[in-house]
Structure formats: structure tokens, C-alpha cells
Amino acid sequence: MTRLLPAPLLSLSLWALWLLLNLSLSAGNLLLGAMLGLLAPIMFAPLRPLPVRIGKPWLAVRLFFLVGRDVLVSNLTVAWGVLRAGQRAPRSVFIKIPLDLHDAHGLAALAMICTVIPGTVWSELALDRSVLLMHVFDLDDEAQFIEHFKGTYERPLMEIFQ
């Protein structure tokens, strides 16, 4: 049954969306929507990500609060840096961070964390997933930043996903 209908909720949603967008309950739209709802999940099943196995859920909750704290602190730091840009220009740099995390789900979570925290931008990931190129808005000590990044985000994500 799962081969014929791999994602029943998705199939039903696609069918309902088709009918809603066409504003018609004609036999043709009912049939086309049903075909879309049945065939799209089958055709796109190979693109679905692998199932996630979370090793330490309590650590994920702790990481969530650490990221929240860092978002608040970074917001204040970036705002202060912008306000005092006339006296001291921010030292924006690209830094290369060596990565030990290679799990696709962990890297996706790390990318989201980098996106959420103001003043940091995930710029590029090496093809072998060993180095992350990141842009930082204002950086005083590169080694300290790398140590904080790896200790606060990468190591917990490794424990959660690997």
C-alpha cells in the first residue's frame, strides 16, 4: 500500500489544492486532481530525505535555547555595531571553519542556525563537507569565534544526529 500511496496526506492535500485553485468540482478537475495527488508523491519519492534519527532529544532542546540566547545577543551586538559604525567600522571577514559534522540533517540544522543568528552568513560548504566558509559582520578574534561556533553548535549537532 505504501508503494501505491507513499504519502496519503500529501496526496489528499494536492488533490484539495488542485480543486481549490480551479474553483470547480467538475468531473475533469476531480480526475486531474486525483491523478496529481496520486502520481506526484510517487514520482518525487526518490527526492524525499532519509529518515531522521535524533540521538539525544534533550540536547536538541538545550541547543534551541542556546541559539535563542545567541540570537538576542547577536541582535544587540549588530545593532551596536551599526550605531557606532561612524567611530569604528565593523571588521567584516570571511572565515573558514573546519567541520567535523558530515551528516546531511546536522548540516541543514547548522545552516539554519547560521541563517537565524544576525551577523553571520553561511557562504559556502566544501564539496567534501570539511570546511564551511562563513561571513561574519564584526569579528575581533577568529580563533575564539571558531571555538565558540564548534563548541556551541557543531558538537551538539554531532551528538544529536550522528
Rank of each mutant, 00 (worst) to 15 (best):
L32Q: 05
G33W: 06
A34W: 12
L36R: 08
G37Q: 06
G37V: 05
L38R: 07
L38T: 10
L38S: 09
L39Q: 11
L39K: 02
A40T: 06
A40R: 01
A40C: 08
A40P: 05
A40H: 05
I42L: 12
M43F: 14
M43W: 14
F44S: 12
P46G: 10
L47C: 01
R48K: 13
P49M: 02
P49H: 10
P49K: 02
L50Q: 09
V52M: 11
R53F: 12
R53G: 03
G55L: 04
P57L: 00
L59A: 02
L59P: 00
A60N: 05
A60I: 03
R62V: 09
L63I: 13
F65D: 02
L66C: 06
L66M: 13
V67T: 08
V67W: 01
G68M: 01
V71A: 07
V71S: 01
L72C: 06
V73S: 00
V73C: 05
V73R: 12
S74F: 08
T77H: 13
T77L: 09
T77P: 10
V78L: 09
A79I: 09
W80I: 12
V82W: 05
V82A: 12
L83G: 08
R84F: 13
A85V: 10
A85C: 04
A85T: 08
G86D: 14
G86N: 15
G86T: 12
Q87R: 15
Q87I: 11
R88L: 11
R88E: 14
A89M: 14
A89N: 08
P90W: 10
P90K: 07
R91K: 14
R91Y: 06
S92T: 15
V93Y: 05
I95N: 07
K96G: 08
I97L: 11
P98N: 09
D100P: 07
L101I: 00
H102R: 15
H102T: 12
A104F: 00
A104I: 01
G106P: 04
L107H: 04
A108K: 07
A108C: 03
A109V: 02
A111G: 12
I113Y: 07
T115G: 13
T115W: 00
V116K: 04
I117N: 04
P118I: 09
G119S: 09
T120Q: 09
V121G: 06
W122T: 09
S123F: 09
S123A: 15
L125V: 03
L125Q: 08
A126Y: 06
A126S: 15
L127F: 10
D128Q: 06
R129L: 11
S130V: 05
S130T: 14
S130Q: 14
V131S: 03
V131P: 09
L133K: 05
L133R: 04
M134S: 11
M134K: 03
M134Q: 10
V136Q: 02
F137L: 03
F137G: 03
F137A: 01
L139M: 00
D140C: 02
D141Y: 04
E142M: 03
A143C: 02
I146L: 04
E147P: 00
E147Q: 02
E147Y: 01
